[in-house]
């Protein structure tokens, strides 16, 4: 087992461990922090795969954006410091079922995919290529989803402004 493999297993254990802690934590703020570490671990996995661009985007979007928003909304709730009540027994059972079936489903998918051993030579990923691919109109271009997503974001932004706007008092 090479050093690279050891690092992979360390990162994976970190992701899974913090993920389990995020689910089982009794304080909601701690759960958010464990989730944060889990997401950072995934970014580390991308770094390990030498996909720096995706790793950086993962950190910006999830750590800098989503988790900060989650923490903010926790701050605004009343009982953020209190311990949460124990979940009901039935809920535990059903969540166990859900976990089991999801695991089985993913396992099946991965098993049937039949990975062929990828070519070992490292690939060079240029940022300008990503940009070109995003805006290319050829068969494998991403121009349509890119534009659709930007429309979605624009709609979300306008919605935010409408919600935040003060009604005119006359």
């Amino acid at each position: 087992m090479g050093a690279s493999k050891i690092i992979f297993y360390i990162i994976s254990t970190f992701i899974l461990g913090t993920g389990i802690l995020a689910v089982t934590a009794t304080k909601i703020f701690r759960a958010a922090i464990w989730l944060l570490f889990s997401l950072i671990g995934i970014a580390a996995l991308y770094f390990w795969m030498q996909l720096e661009f995706i790793a950086a985007v993962q950190i910006i979007v999830y750590v800098g954006g989503i988790v900060v928003l989650i923490i903010f909304s926790i701050f605004l709730t009343q009982k953020s410091g209190d311990e949460m009540p124990k979940p009901l027994q039935q809920r535990k059972l059903f969540s166990l079922f859900a976990v089991f079936f999801a695991f089985a489903f993913t396992y099946l998918l991965i098993h049937q995919y039949g990975f062929y051993s990828s070519n070992p030579q490292p690939f060079e990923l240029k940022i300008s290529d990503i940009g070109m691919q995003m805006l290319s109109t050829t068969e494998h271009g991403f121009i349509l989803p890119f534009e659709v997503v930007s429309m979605l974001l624009l709609a979300a932004m306008i919605g935010c402004i409408v919600i935040a706007m003060k009604a005119k008092t006359e």
Binding site: V57, G64, V68
Partner: peptide, 15 residues
């Protein structure tokens, strides 16, 4: 990804 890396990591310190 120099510049992107910097803006990514600097968002961690707020946490």
């Amino acid at each position: 990804i120099g510049v992107l890396y910097i803006s990514a990591i600097s968002s961690i310190s707020v946490i």
